[in-house]
Nucleic acid binder design. Sequence first.
RNA 1: GCGCCCGUAGCUCAGUUGGAUAGAGCACCGGUUUCCUAAACCGGGGGUCGCAGGUUCGAGUCCUGCCGGGCGCGCCA
Length: 589
Amino acid sequence: MTESSGPIEAIAQALSCAIAAALGEQYRDTDLQIRPSQNPKFGDYQANFAMKLAKQLGSNPRELASKVADAAAEELAAIAEPLEVAGPGFINIRLKNQAIAHMLSSMDNQELGVTQQDDPHTIVIDLCAVNIAKQMHVGHLRSTIIGDALARILERIGRTVLRENHLGDWGLPIAMVLHELLEAKTNLDTLKLAELDSAYRKAQQKAKDDDAFLEAAKTTLVKLQNSDPQLIEDWHKLINCTLTALYESLEILNVKLTKENNRGESFYRDKLPGVIEAFTNAKLAKEDDGAMVVPFDTRERPLLIQKSDGGYLYATTDLAAIRLRTGQSNANRIIYVVDARQRDHFRDVFDAAKLIGWDKTPDGECAELRHIPFGSVLGPDKRPLKTRSGENVTLKSLLDEACERGESEVKKRASDPKAPTHGLSEAELKDIGTAVGIGAIKYADLSNDLVRDYVFDMNRMVRFEGNTGPYLQYAHARICSIFTKAGIDAGVLSSEQFAIGEPAERRLALTLLKYPDIIADVAKTLEPHRLCTYLYELADAYSSFYEHCPVLKAETDSIKRSRLKLCHLTRNVLSDGLDLLGIKAPTRM
RNA sequence: GCGCCCGUAGCUCAGUUGGAUAGAGCACCGGUUUCCUAAACCGGGGGUCGCAGGUUCGAGUCCUGCCGGGCGCGCCA
């Protein structure tokens, strides 16, 4: 039996050898297409390579499959029942229960079987990116939640991740609001978010109606860009006002993002002239109507990198950022979690970066530049979420609602004298409620294909049934309660053996064994909803197991201990998976 | 006008990157159950995968053309 590898690796190794033996060494690296079977009657796993390979060789796929299956029989005998060839040439593999138990032991450790990458390059994730000229609204929620989850997943496979909050803290909108605040003689030391919001709206309106205001704001921008000491000081006060609120919200959201992660547009301000210079020297940029543009062979519209008045644009900043991230931060993967409307922008910026070679790390590796486009959060009317008066919903009000709803769900259940949460203190219930409410909105955000819009429906998100965050948290809490009830510390089980017998145990075990592959898949595709789907499947398999297999009242002590180990491993995978989504898993709820 | 994205059950969504009879959850209908158990369980109906072609052993998935919805299209970020 192969050592400490998952089922797919073990099967793949045997089949590769078998193909090499039966067909020749040159076919050893054939893509075996091994995957879990959809239907139990097709075994636990299936290998689908025979059809394609037979085509290449001009032979019969069923015969080819049989030949390979025969050649693999001896090596696989230790872990699998005799292979079956079915349909046009599928090879169906059913694992022996003993092998399943052995493989479970292999993943029953700190890493839960997740393969660690030892790539010395970093990964940069560009996320959150709030505009500091106004209060945060619901639009900032997704970038932050998704970016944080992706960062956690990539850290989980052993990578060094640099989370960079690309704050909108520089440029005309900031100058405009700053100008408005100063003109109104607002005291910036006591600036409140509400004042800022109203100043922002006024400034936007004035800029439209009043040319003189716009000109004055542009003058303020020039002063700011020239580092006028007084103005810079005022600018810092403005930033602090929004950032203080941001960090409070991030704390509630359980997102790992602090001041250390600030890499706003202002951070790149002295690197912008160098961008134009580099593109000009490389003859990749040309003048067009007084502005500098980077033309592309494949399309009409070029990328504008400098305005005709000499000013820079956000494309310029993004290019400067790529240059720094590959060149100095040594990133071979740069991930932009920005809404889908900016697709064209990132395509242009990435192409421009490739033209000039800034996608290369110092050791010459080609970095992956990746935009993660996500859809909008919609209201019940299927239009982008707004308040009744037509304003953007503030992030704060959304989080408040989530926490309240979570708390009321938890308290409702705690009022039952039989509930494990009965009698907990107000503060404890509040903490659990926050975890539930925030878990609900995060899970709703992450559990479907990111690119799609979704309707924000608190009633559905907070339900304890169906594919929701609270359901998974509940599944986890219930397992915790078994150990409390049994009075057993899971640590004492470490020397015990897994034993797989009942169909429900088997299904749970096979689901557990998928976890390392799911994490590897999500780290590659950057599609967190696949992890959500998996965790739901796991909770479902566990639920069925728990329904059909008595744990504390198992027939024998060894079965009881094995089942407790299954419970424990399931709990660990659930809490690990939820943690990767940035969702807390309380032990009681 | 050009470009991009989306279209799967009544509703909300999956669909392992081209694999076997398209799956879940809500909702609906029928039955079982008071348990080691803190979400009860089992079964059932419900589908022209937007439409039409094409590629091949095989298409919800790939290519082309339509239809419908959303978004974006140089000196804002």
